[in-house]
Simulated scan of single mutants.
Amino acid sequence: MASTKVTKTEDEWRRELDPAAYAVLRQAATERPYTGEYTDTETVGVYHCRACGAELFRSETKFASHCGWPSFYAPTADDNVVLVTDRSFGTVRTEVRCASCDSHLGHVFTGEGYDTPTDQRWCINSVALRLEPATG
């Protein structure tokens, strides 16, 4: 089940997020490849939306795609994310947004040939995530 809807003004988001996070989460920017905090992280835990804290991905579904951004093969629950057709840059892609706060997370790609259970690559900006390491 998706988290409770989070509604804030853009001024509130600007005050709560640093400029890089605001650009990605609220303006659909993309961080530069191979610069994100979680690109190569192998820490076991849960990835949450940096804007609202909703659970989005688990480390068990993270894989090394070598694309420059953290990659997952599935979200924790389908209703935790919203998929939107993105026609920017002269192509059609599928944008991934947080279902709780409508923040931009990244894009999902299918059929690229990765050896994953879903044949999907959820290419997510590190700055859109906050990792909660597993305890114990």
Rank of each mutant, 00 (worst) to 15 (best):
S71W: 03
E37V: 06
D79S: 07
K62G: 03
A51N: 08
P33H: 09
Y38N: 06
G45E: 00
V44D: 14
A64L: 10
T61V: 13
F63D: 01
F72E: 01
T43V: 15
F72C: 00
S71N: 00
G53D: 13
T85M: 03
P75R: 14
E42I: 08
S71M: 03
E55M: 08
C52N: 14
T76C: 13
C52H: 13
D86Q: 12
G45S: 08
F57S: 04
L56F: 12
T76D: 09
V44T: 15
E60D: 15
R58S: 11
E42D: 13
S59L: 05
D86M: 10
T61N: 05
T43L: 09
L83R: 10
T43I: 15
L56A: 12
N80Y: 05
L56I: 13
T76Y: 02
T39G: 00
S65Q: 00
S59C: 04
Y47N: 05
Y34H: 15
Y38K: 10
T35F: 06
G53W: 07
C49L: 09
R32N: 13
F57R: 02
F72S: 00
G68H: 03
V82N: 07
V44I: 14
D40S: 12
R32V: 09
T41S: 15
S65A: 15
P70Q: 04
S59H: 06
T39C: 11
C67P: 07
D78H: 09
G45I: 07
G36P: 14
R50F: 07
Y73C: 11
F63M: 04
R32I: 02
V82R: 12
A74Q: 12
V81H: 02
R50G: 01
P33F: 11
E37Y: 05
G68S: 05
F63E: 01
G68Y: 10
F57M: 07
P75K: 08
V46R: 14
T85K: 11
S65N: 01
G53N: 15
S65G: 12
D86F: 05
T41I: 12
T41L: 09
G45T: 10
P33R: 03
P75C: 10
G53P: 08
D79W: 11
D86K: 06
Y38C: 06
V84P: 01
R58W: 06
Y38V: 03
H66E: 11
P33M: 06
G45V: 10
C49A: 13
R58V: 06
E60N: 12
R50T: 08
A77L: 03
T85L: 04
R50M: 06
P75M: 08
K62L: 08
K62H: 08
Y47V: 08
T76K: 06
V46Q: 12
V84H: 13
D78N: 11
T61G: 02
E60R: 15
C67A: 11
P70N: 10
V81W: 00
Y38L: 14
